[in-house]
Design a protein around this nucleic acid. Structure first.
Lengths: 187, 187
DNA sequence: ATTGGCATGTAACCAGTTACATGATTCC
DNA sequence: GGAATCATGTAACTGGTTACATGCCAAT
């Protein structure tokens, strides 16, 4: 029931279809929770059957109809309850770092390539987050934004994502430099 | 088969029992991959049956016997193959950030408490990583260490863990400050 | 004409978590 | 005497991934 909470949190931004949510996850939630469309459709069904969300069917012309979900009172309560649960230690699973850990007994060139690709994707994500931030701030200083806006959660997670990607970038640059030097000086 | 690769990488450090591995994971691998003892025992069995690792039984007095596992040639090959695989985008799942995202519709005090706890654990981890780093460097400068040591993988992942925890700390401090200010100025 | 976006789902499989289970030893 | 450590496992459950499946519309 872990995805459930991420979905509830995402629906705080407003009603969304499965498809919308899938994009919303990619755009902002993906920073700390990833989910495939398949996962979302299944979870939405289950959540609806549990009364946490409700659907409103929107007829569309020249488009398939869609079901827009929003939080019910029970859903809001469930979200509240979730935030009040004692935190469990965050589980990390980073395949790239497993490869880096194993670089000395593995294919060093391939690991370097993987880091380089990671670096590129971190740069792309950082650029996206910067755009998102500018959109949120809408010309205001951070201070004013924080004073004025109703919600700060999305801003805080965005800041976390930004810092994470910045750190990814500088780590990857450093790691590449070290590994490249090694490869030119074989023992 | 994702844990498998983390186990192979961990066994590069030398032979280990299930119990040893469990501690090794906690100590260093946990930085990027977490696994419970139960997971490890099951995975070790499977890996042995696939010929990736082999066990050597050590009789102990006043202690249960233990099975020390080490990589076979096939295991080394599997590790090599894994490092050469094209990287898949890292999956993140951070429950704390889900709570933060939902803070505006949830229990803000509980979320602040969760962040504070996270901050403490990040500080503790950073201190541990600093100790690990000092142990690895063994009095040498980073430059000399990198020039001399046979393996760099564990150092690079350690640096990543350190940077990650540092960033956790500064983000958590900032987030707490923002949320505390909000709580004292209710809309 | 083909790619990409909109829109939704099912089924089979694989991986991870939690609870249960045991038993001796060493340290405080 | 009780907690922590050493040492290993099973069983039931939950959650996540991958592959398969469909079909229309807009833009290039």
């Amino acid at each position: 029931m872990a995805l459930r909470n991420a979905v509830l949190a995402a629906l705080l931004e407003g009603e969304a279809s499965g498809y919308d949510l899938s994009k919303r996850f990619d755009a902002s939630v993906a920073n700390f929770w990833m989910a495939t469309p398949q996962q979302l459709y299944k979870e939405l069904e289950r959540m609806e059957s549990q009364g946490l969300i409700e659907a409103r069917v929107v007829q569309q012309e020249r488009r398939p109809n869609k079901r827009l979900y929003s939080l019910t009172g029970a859903g809001q309560q469930a979200l509240h309850d979730f935030t009040a649960e004692p935190p469990r230690p965050t589980a990390i699973r980073d395949e790239l770092l497993v490869k880096v850990q194993a670089v000395d007994g593995g294919d060093a060139a391939a690991v370097r390539a993987a880091i380089a690709e990671h670096l590129e994707s971190a740069r792309a994500k950082l650029a996206r987050y910067d755009l998102d931030r500018a959109r949120l701030l809408a010309g205001r200083t951070e201070e004013r934004f924080l004073a004025e806006s109703e919600r700060v959660g999305p801003y805080l997670t965005l800041m976390r994502g930004r810092a994470f990607e910045k750190e990814n970038i500088s780590w990857a640059e450093r790691a590449l430099a070290i590994l490249e030097q090694r490869s030119s000086l074989p023992a």
